[in-house]
Nucleic acid binder design. Sequence first.
DNA 1: TATCCAAGGTAAGTT
DNA 2: AACTTACCTTGGATA
Length: 303
Amino acid sequence: MESGVIDVDSLAGGFDLQSTLESGQSYLWWREDGRDYEDDSQYGGDASYLTTTREDGTPAVVRVRQTDGQVRWESAVDAESAVRRRLRLDDDLVEIRDATPADELLETAFDTYRGMRLVRDPPFGALVSFICSAQMHVTRIHGMQQSLRAAFGTPVEFDGETYHAYPTPAQLADATEEQLRDLSLGYRAPYVKRTAKMVADGEADPADARELPYEEARDALTEFVGVGDKVADCVLLFSLDYLEAVPLDTWIRKTITEYYPDCDRGNYTDTSRAIRERLGGKYAGYAQTYVFQFIRNHRSTDV
DNA sequence: TATCCAAGGTAAGTT
DNA sequence: AACTTACCTTGGATA
């Protein structure tokens, strides 16, 4: 077992592991205590989270926990760089906030979730998990990914337990639609299978979008089955380093209606451009994630 | 208890 | 290009 500690004070703008991983950005981590996200009962804010990586081709489990101003990781391999990469620990949150307009909603959201960072998911896992996200509750999207791991992922031993790596494109391409529907994927089942086959066959690779300008990259990703503009934006923002991407989901649309009504231009492309500009451009996706988390967590009393 | 409805939308068919 | 409609499943809201 290898391990390492990262001092939160060394990270510009701080770090909050819980809000980073439980804000609906990534469905590729899970809590070691088995408790669902959004279940705050008996929780002190220092839960351990697990995920899997493939640093040298073979999958390994990584455990991360935040306590007393420190982020501690443990794994069978040296996971220091993987942790920094996956949790975007090198992002400068001070610079990002400075580049964000100081309207009341954004100020409140940034204050409420200080230290929340974007994630950087592996491209294929991000692609599949957001295909699964269509018209689906956050907790169930998360459950689906766990089901996919258990059913099709390669077993990995860690700390006396058996976990499963996220399935490879080939593993999901080999699944039958019926198997996927049995995991409650519903109409998303054929989307996942067909997209996985496209990647497994080398017909397309979501990571290739990285070489394109933002809007072209978004168009390129919609080539995958089950991927429209919104899911494409999620992959660009949460995996491919397009920090300006603003996924227009139901919550952001609600926010636009209430706070930025002039940004509603009737179609995705033009509304996207308008809200992206309003949220500061370069880091608009970061601002989007803070707003998403704030609005969604205040749905019963607010909105 | 039964029914309705929205959930981090997309694909396919019409106008 | 803009507008409709169908699509799986489920937990919580509503009657």
